[in-house]
Design a protein around this nucleic acid. Structure first.
Length: 263
DNA sequence: ATGGTAGGTATCCTA
């Protein structure tokens, strides 16, 4: 099974990229974030025509929004309110093969890395704490779970272009990195991509729109993640960051990330 | 040190 996560930054502006996305990823399951569209206007047919007939969509007007599009039958899907807000940042499904998939869009957190001063940062920290509490309580502990999405945290030194310069920049602050670590520990999740790309190697999934030449300045961050529970770790076969997608026009500022899981 | 761009919507907010 091949699974791709991608923050599309408007799904309607990226539907033209679907053939390229499918050719590059050969995904059975697509998990999207920042779809930025209400469910009634989601381009369902464009995905269905390409084989993604099983669809779970959770969108709202203007901001946020997540969607899971699958070629494999979906056995059930569930939604949940996070931080007492109906803001379309999560969808989850269980496939007929028993694998449970969680698609998250963690709040970006604004500019000021201080929860007292900045309510958006407080929301981000609360969201991460709630994710950790949710998976800590999950029973049994041996379920095959995949957690993906734009987690808006770059945890490792080589997940950002300058560890030192980003220590007080939202997405790489020690408090966020610690809380993301708590989410990871909550169910024993494994960073599927770093299983294949060693931590000594720089790896990004996002480059700002604000650079004149994103590739030349290469000031990226790894904000998009694929994690698997211990039950799936031994079945990981491949991981890939589709860096070339940053040049698909018009581009999202995030690129797709794909993993292959045996079975 | 600063400001740079993009998207959706409404004339600004979020990223």
């Amino acid at each position: 099974m091949r699974l791709t996560t991608w923050n599309v930054n408007s799904v309607r502006l990226r539907t033209g990229h679907l053939p390229a996305l499918i050719e590059a990823t050969r995904a059975d399951v697509l998990c999207l974030q920042e779809t930025k569209v209400i469910d009634e206007a989601f381009p369902r047919d464009a995905f269905a025509e390409l084989g993604y007939r099983h669809q779970v969509i959770a969108g709202q007007k203007n901001h946020n929004g997540v969607a899971i599009l699958s070629r494999l039958p979906i056995d059930k899907h569930a939604s949940r309110v996070w931080c007492e807000r109906e803001d379309c940042r999560h969808a989850s499904i269980t496939l007929e093969n028993g694998i449970e998939i969680h698609d998250f869009y963690v709040p970006a957190g604004g500019d000021i890395p201080d929860p007292e001063e900045n309510p958006k940062f407080a929301h981000k920290l609360a969201f991460l704490r709630e994710m950790a509490a949710y998976f800590r309580k999950r029973r049994p502990r041996n379920a095959p779970i995949v957690l993906v999405g734009d987690l808006n945290v770059a945890p490792l030194e080589n997940d950002v272009w300058s560890h030192k310069q980003l220590l007080d920049v939202v997405s790489h602050t020690p408090i966020e990195v610690a809380l993301l670590g708590d989410v990871m520990k909550s169910y024993g999740f494994v960073d599927a991509v770093r299983r294949f790309v060693p931590p000594e190697q720089r790896l990004y999934t996002w480059w700002s729109y604000r650079a004149q030449d994103w590739a030349k300045s290469d000031r990226g961050r790894r904000l998009d993640h694929v994690w698997v529970s211990p039950a799936l770790e031994g079945r990981l076969r491949e991981a890939h960051v589709h860096k070339a997608a940053r040049d698909w026009t018009p581009p999202s500022d995030h690129v797709p990330v794909t993993v292959e899981i045996e079975g």
